[in-house]
Design a protein around this nucleic acid. Structure first.
Lengths: 356, 356
DNA sequence: TTGTACGCGTTATCAA
DNA sequence: TTGATAACGCGTACAA
C-alpha cells in the first residue's frame, strides 16, 4: 500500500501546471483557461486526491464563529447539561480558531426566542446550532439562514421540513415504548393503574411529549396487557398552588402503581412528592441523569431513567458543524442517539465514564 | 477573550530569546544556559501555552506503526467486533501517517500467543494495543516493551501490574451486579433456582468470569433475597459430546427460572438450547450485541444483554495510542466504559446509532 | 549555547 | 489567466 498521499504539488506536476491552477480547479474558483482545466481534470480523474486536512486548517488560518441558540440553562438543569456539552466542544476547538457564541432564550416566552434569533441573524455566524423548541416561531429564521448559506444543525427537537445539515436527538416514540417496557418490568407482574405525567412548562414541547406517550401506550396495546389502566395527566407551572393539589390528588390514589414522567425536570419534582408522601410502592420512570434525579435513584425513589444524553447531543452538534466547516465533512442527516437505560446498578458506571 | 493562541514565537519575544531556545526548554532538550532557562520559565509560568497540534503533526511528517495484538477474530464473533473497531480507527488515522498491523493469536493456545508476541517485538512498532487474555505468558513481553520504551495499551482484560499507558474495559464486578439486578427484575417477583453459567473455552478468561459471578452473587446477598437458590456451572468446549449432555441436564430442571451467562458467545449457545428445548419460561441474561444474540433477543429468548462494547474498546485503544504518539496527549489510565443495558425496546436504537 | 532558516501541504496574494 | 511565493506554527538541522 502506498502510504504517501498525493499532494497538490504532484497533481500540478502531472498536469504540467502550477499549484495555483490546481487549487483554483479544486475549489471552482474560476479564472482558469479551458485548456488548463482539461489537463487538471484529466489528472484528477485518474487519481484519488484526498486533501491533507491538517495542512488545510493550518494554511487557511481562518476563524469560524458558531452560534448556539438554546433555552436559558438557568431555567432548567436539562438545558444546563446541553450547555456543558457546548462548552466542552468549544474548549476542544478553540485552539483551531473556532469560537462558539451562545444565545439563550426564555424557555417560556416565544417572543424571547424571536428576539434572540434576530440577534443571531444579525451577527452572521459561520454556522448555527439550535434547539428549535418553538415550531412556528423558528420556521422563518431557517428560511433566512438557508438563503444566506449558513449551515444549521438541530438538536433535541427535529423539524425535518427545514432540511438541516444534521439533526441530533432520539426516537421519541421508541423512547416511550422503552419506558413502558421498563414500567412493565418494574411492576413485578402485578397489574393496576399507571399514570403518564407531563409537566408542560414550556408549551413548545407538547409534540415532543405526546410522541413519548404514544409510544408508551403502544407498548401495552401490542402486548395486550389489559390488566393495566393507563391515565394521562397534564400539569403546568410547579409554582402555582394548584400544581401541588392536582399532583397530590393523583398520588393519593391507592390503586396507582407506576408513573411515567415525560421530562427530566418533572422526574425529580414527582420524586420529591413521592418521597414526601411515602408512596414507595409507586414505581417511577423518568428521564436523564440530572443531579437531583441521580440522588433520587440512589435512594430508590426513581426506578429507571432513560438517558437522553443532552450533553452529548449538543457536543455532537457543535462537532458536526466544525467538521463541516473546517474539514468539509458531511454530517449525518439524522443522528439518533441510543436510548440508554439507567438503573441503580449501572448508574455509577455512567457517572464515572463522564460522557453523560 | 483573546482568541489568538500564544505561539512559541510569542514566548520567545516575551522572554527575549529565540524560538529555538524556547523549543529546547519546552522539550527539555538541554543545551540551554541557566539564564535563558530562567527567563523562559518565567514567561511559561505566566501564560498557559498550548501547542498547535495541527502544526506539529504537519511539520513532523512522521509515520507511526501501531501493532494490535489480539485473539483471532475468526474464532469468536466477540473478537470480530474488536477487530472492526481497530479497522475503523485505522481508516480514520491512515491519512495522518498511522498504520495498524494486526497480529492474531489462537484463543485456545498459549504458545500461539508467545509466538505472535515475539513477532511483534521483532517488528518494533511505535505503539502496541493488546488484549492480554493469558496472564502469565504476557508478563515478560511487557517487561521488554517497557525497556524499549514502546507504549502499550490494554483492552478487555486488565493487568494493572504491568503499568500500561491505558486500560480500556469495564468494571466486571459491577457488571455481574447489574446482571443480577436485571435477573431479579425479569423474575417478576417469583423465586426459584438461578444458574450462573460459564463456558470457559479459553482458560485465560477464568478470572474475568469469576469476577462477574462474584458481583452477581453479591447483589442477592446485599438484598437478602433468600428466595433464590443460585448454582454455578462450568462448561468447556461446546463441540465435545459431554457439553450437550451437561447443559441439557441443567435446562431440564423444572425449578430453573433464570440463567446468567458470563460471555457473549456462550449467550447465544445457551439461547439456542433454550429455544430447542422450548424452555421459554427461563429468563436469559448475557453479554454483547453479537448478531446471533440480537436475533435471539428479537425472538424473546434472551431477556437482557449487557453491552461490553468490544468495538468501542478497541477503537478507543488505538485512538489513545495515536493521541499519545502524535498529539502527546496523556491517555486516561483507566477508561471504564458504561455498562449498557440492552433490552428488546432499545435494541434498535443501539443498532442504528452504529457505535456498538 | 544560541539563533536562523527551511520543510510539512494548503490557502491566499500579487505581480506578470 | 497564470505561476511564484509568502504565510500558518512547529520541529529540527545547522551554522555561528
Amino acid at each position: 500500500m502506498n502510504v504517501k498521499n498525493i499532494r497538490i504539488k504532484d497533481i500540478a506536476q502531472l498536469a504540467g501546471v502550477s499549484v495555483g491552477t490546481v487549487d483554483r480547479v479544486l475549489h471552482n474558483r474560476g479564472r482558469v483557461s479551458e485548456d488548463a482545466l482539461k489537463k487538471v481534470l484529466a489528472v484528477l480523474d485518474q487519481i484519488d486526491y484526498k486533501p491533507n486536512l491538517i495542512a488545510r486548517t493550518l494554511g487557511a488560518n481562518k476563524t469560524y464563529r458558531i452560534a448556539a441558540l438554546m433555552p436559558n440553562p438557568d431555567q432548567d438543569p436539562y438545558w444546563a447539561s446541553s450547555k456543558s456539552g457546548i462548552s466542552q466542544a468549544e474548549a476542544e476547538w478553540l485552539r483551531y480558531g473556532v469560537t462558539v457564541q451562545s444565545y439563550f432564550f426564555n424557555l417560556y416566552e416565544k417572543d424571547s426566542f424571536k428576539e434572540v434569533a434576530e440577534a443571531v441573524t444579525k451577527d452572521r455566524p459561520d454556522g448555527i446550532l439550535v434547539a428549535p423548541i418553538f415550531y412556528h416561531e423558528t420556521l422563518p429564521f431557517f428560511e433566512q439562514f438557508k438563503q444566506e448559506g449558513i449551515p444549521y444543525v438541530l438538536f433535541n427537537t427535529n423539524i425535518p421540513e427545514v432540511d438541516p445539515l444534521s439533526f441530533i436527538g432520539q426516537n421519541l416514540f421508541q423512547s416511550g415504548k422503552l419506558g413502558a417496557e421498563l414500567m412493565h418490568l418494574a411492576q413485578n407482574g402485578e397489574s393496576g393503574m399507571l399514570a403518564v405525567l407531563h409537566i408542560n412548562e414550556d408549551l413548545g414541547n407538547s409534540v415532543h411529549l405526546a410522541e413519548k406517550e404514544k409510544g408508551f401506550r403502544e407498548y401495552f396495546l401490542e402486548k395486550n396487557h389489559s390488566g393495566y389502566n393507563i391515565t394521562t395527566h397534564n400539569l403546568y407551572n410547579p409554582n402555582e398552588p394548584t400544581f401541588e393539589k392536582e399532583l397530590s390528588a393523583l398520588l393519593d390514589q391507592p390503586a396507582l402503581k407506576g408513573i411515567f414522567v415525560s421530562t427530566s425536570k418533572a422526574t425529580y419534582i414527582v420524586a420529591s412528592y413521592l418521597e414526601k408522601l411515602q408512596r414507595n410502592n409507586i414505581k417511577l420512570i423518568g428521564y436523564d441523569m440530572l443531579q437531583e434525579n441521580i440522588r433520587y435513584m440512589k435512594k430508590g425513589v426513581i426506578n429507571f431513567l432513560i438517558n437522553q444524553n443532552p450533553k452529548r447531543q449538543a457536543f455532537l452538534g457543535i462537532n458536526h458543524l466544525v467538521g463541516y466547516l473546517i474539514l468539509r465533512k458531511e454530517a449525518p442527516a439524522n443522528e439518533l442517539l441510543p436510548l440508554e437505560i439507567i438503573s441503580k446498578e449501572n448508574l455509577d458506571s455512567y457517572l464515572s465514564s463522564g460522557i453523560h
